[in-house]
Write a protein that binds this DNA or RNA. Structure first.
Lengths: 332, 332
DNA sequence: ATGAAAGCGCTAACAT
DNA sequence: ATGTTAGCGCTTTCAT
């Protein structure tokens, strides 16, 4: 691989001039410009990004830590982030934390050691304290509960869940079972809170028993199934996309007419949900906007290190399709 | 951020010793080792990966170019690659080519400039010639048609499609419509070939009209729908996961009893397909193994630059579930 | 067993 | 308007 030195020699100029032609640092006469450029082409020269980074102290690289890229919610975010970063001249080092806090810490350190300019993290748990110590610009994405002091972007979970629940209520449902993954995520707790607020707004009693934490594993189905059997809800509100799947399985195993006997409202929209018929109604999170906002927030922070931490809260939409039926006989 | 120099000063040793303690280059007495290590801890020192890379000429970074990370097939591969790379001490720079060859070329160059140690590419089209010129170890993944001379890992598409078709035949189906995306991908052409071979093996006529290229956009549904209307197949074989979706939509629009009146066999297995009932039978590609193999092949190439290009061809499985019905009345 | 010093390829401050 | 040169933080040869 030729270096800047080779180009300088071939063009008969100093390496500074080559650098300036390529990076546009200072004015170079058109003639020299031309000679340098042809030397560059003749040699097939490409600047060594590592050397540039060492010298300039900027790698033009962002670190991204995601729990599981296989989940369409996360992969949608990754896609948006990568695209935004790319159009702004940044590359993305992607790591998967596999929902493991210890691994997340390790990845964080390893990314910092590689001198990424900043980090976008979808943390495995609330308030990752070590991220503060890092001395690196960090933007928290999606799971942004816990303390502030971080730049963060997420969705108005309370509002979204309230809106979803209100929709269910408007269709006449009174016994709504909320399927949660784990209450350890503030994200999910906020959705529970939105659910509660909607019930309260309708002067209905909030029954904590109707909120069931299914966990994040295969056993979720069993938990959901038993809860449905025990509480006989007329509607299910799945608080994550995975739980929509779980809910569907539970409904099937119980042999319930869907949506006639039981309705389902999902959280997160995803292409493949159209495999389900009747089509799933869901709260839809603005993936594109979330990812882009996270990336842009980080770049702004890089440009302006001292400004106070920002919080971006995006609203969700409600996609009304077919999985929620009108409930005629209102239970008392 | 403290540097190796700071550590050396605090520990009262040379920077060479610090380096050797950390990188295990040469023997250092236990005493000095200890002093150095406590200095490291006291300062919270972390080696600067960029400087290490510049000096050692290795970045411990792999470039990965994927058409669309949002497709569960690709995201499954990415997950496996990232994990394998991580356990071997490598990080992954992820880029999305968005099925755009020009963008792919640009990403390639930009990754090379960042001095990745090697590249894993799921190319947007067959035989990407510029990848040869790159002077960088490259492993082609999934779309590995075209000329050889590359390290590549993929699946036995012919065998898989033949097996799938044979299964359909064994269930009594005689008019099988093969839904392809584009015939420009050798990948897909191979699946067509497997389909043809199976028919031939059963002494049935291969009718090119029964192979329909639906394209990769939203219009696919219309194309598929018209083909079904025109040819009245008893079974559909979708050659990609997207096409399973397309097939399902087409079947619904035609109001066909599924799988009674029409059967469906998919390609690629994915978690969310369980939303469809009856459950989708599919050819399943070994995502984990594919990703891991690609990564490992690349690392082997890094260790042994001169060995001849390897080709890894993995077999597929057939997951028989419920979407293919026995065809009683065999057409003549 | 350890230290001194060269140099990876580049940018930017300092010259002219 | 262009050239010279000092590092960026590290690994690695060459000394001792």
């Amino acid at each position: 691989m030729p270096t800047i030195k080779d180009v300088a020699k071939l063009a008969g100029v100093s390496i500074a001039t080559v650098s300036n032609v390529l990076s546009g640092g200072r004015y170079v006469s058109p003639q020299l410009r031309g000679t340098v450029l042809s030397a560059v082409r003749a040699l097939g020269y490409m600047p060594n990004g590592v050397a540039q980074s060492l010298r300039s102290r900027r790698t033009q690289t962002l670190g991204l830590i995601v729990p599981d890229i296989t989940n369409p919610f996360f992969s949608g975010l990754v896609k948006a982030i990568e695209r935004t970063a790319r159009t702004r001249g940044y590359q993305v080092l992607l790591s998967s934390s596999e929902e493991n806090p210890d691994l997340e810490l390790g990845l964080t350190l390893s990314l910092a050691s590689r001198q990424v300019d900043g980090l976008i993290v979808i943390p495995t748990q609330d308030s990752p304290e070590y991220l503060r110590q890092l001395g690196l610009p960090v933007v928290l994405l999606d799971r942004i509960g816990g303390q502030d002091g971080f730049d963060r972007v997420g969705v108005d979970n309370i509002g979204a869940a309230r809106q979803g629940t209100e929709f269910l209520l408007s269709q006449g449902h009174r016994r709504i079972l909320l399927l949660a993954s784990t209450l350890e995520l503030s994200n999910i707790r906020e959705r529970v809170e939105g659910y509660r607020q909607a019930l309260q707004g309708a002067h209905l009693e909030y029954d904590p028993q109707l909120v069931v934490a299914c966990g994040r594993e295969a056993t979720s189905i069993k938990v959901a199934l038993e809860a449905v059997q025990k509480h006989c809800p007329s509607a299910l509100f799945a608080a994550t996309n995975r739980l929509s799947l779980v809910a569907v399985q539970a409904i099937r195993e119980l042999g319930l007419g869907f949506p006639r006997e039981i309705s389902l409202l999902g959280f997160d929209d995803f292409e493949w949900s159209t495999l389900l018929e009747p089509y799933l109604s869901t709260v839809v999170q603005p993936l594109e906007a979330l990812g882009a906002a996270a990336c842009e927030l980080l770049l702004e922070r890089l440009a302006e290190p001292l400004r106070p931490p920002q919080r971006v809260l995006l609203p969700c939409d409600l996609a009304v399709r077919q999985s929620v039926a009108q409930q005629k006989e209102v239970s008392v």
